[in-house]
Design a protein around this nucleic acid. Structure first.
Lengths: 147, 147
DNA sequence: GTCAATTTAATTGTACGCAATTAATATGAA
DNA sequence: TTCATATTAATTGCGTACAATTAAATTGAC
């Protein structure tokens, strides 16, 4: 029996998993001064783009569910960066809005992308190809329509 | 001030993070019957390739540290898949060896890679390019030698 | 040989990540 | 209108991840 298919070197998903983790770890020194984790950082990015959305939309945007977002948003609220307000119209919805401090934080965060790029050792061509393929996967959906 | 650099659409790392998570989630239905999580699965793959290595080597292989591996390996041990043995030679080392059941599980696991490929909607060309770039990043190290 | 420095695992503490469930609210077909 | 269904957030439980610390063992410079 040939078990080559189970070798780590023959996986596509393992390097994806490993690179993703390592890259996320690279953010830490740049996010620590802002008091944000990586997940909190992308949450803030989503809000800086679209303030005042509900948890559901935020989750669709970030590929996260309420089990992750609810406690995370409560922490951001405790830090004074966002406000969580249950909608009067439809009490199922909780809308997340940035506070003044939340908007202010963007001034510091604007430096992060460039800091990270300097730190990440990847050729421009590779970065571009990677960007294209990954976004294609996200846009079209990752799963075949089997079951 | 232009904040485009903070748009999610302009990030390389966000789709990497999102795709990695989504792909890992795809494994669940195929790994559940084996009683493994994704992290446990790649750990078993490493052991099927190189049985009897210590926690340190396993961690280097998988890009995981003892904080993740120690409890995970204890769970695999509790399931009867591996044995953890402190070395007589050098008591700092804990060697992980597969049990008979651990080797047996490979017979079921061999189906997983193909099941996943069928399920993952990616073009062959893209998969190949992705594979090449990600492994290049892992091989060379992800970080520039700034410090 | 001795002890400071290093190595290795384990532990601790914080923060995800997600499946499954719960609870509250809203919707819509009869 | 009414009640079964659907939607939305929150909760629960389990399993990572990883930084920082601890503890035990080993090594090596002197």
């Amino acid at each position: 029996m040939n078990y080559d298919a189970l070798k780590l070197k023959n996986q596509l998903c393992f390097p994806l998993y490993a690179v993703s983790k390592e890259v996320t770890r690279l953010y830490k020194p740049f996010l620590d001064p802002l008091g944000l984790t990586y997940t909190q950082y992308i949450t803030m990015m989503a809000l800086w783009e679209t303030d005042g959305i509900n948890v559901k939309s935020l989750g669709e945007r970030l590929f996260l569910d309420s089990g992750t977002l609810t406690p995370l948003l409560k922490k951001l609220e405790a830090q004074g960066l966002v406000k969580r307000t249950r909608s009067k119209d439809n009490e199922r919805n909780v809308f997340i809005t940035l506070t003044e401090a939340g908007w202010q934080l963007r001034e510091s965060a604007i430096k992060v992308p460039e800091q990270l790029i300097k730190c990440l050792k990847i050729e421009a061509d590779d970065a571009q190809v990677l960007y294209r393929i990954l976004n294609k996967l996200l846009d079209q959906g990752i799963q075949t329509e089997v079951k």
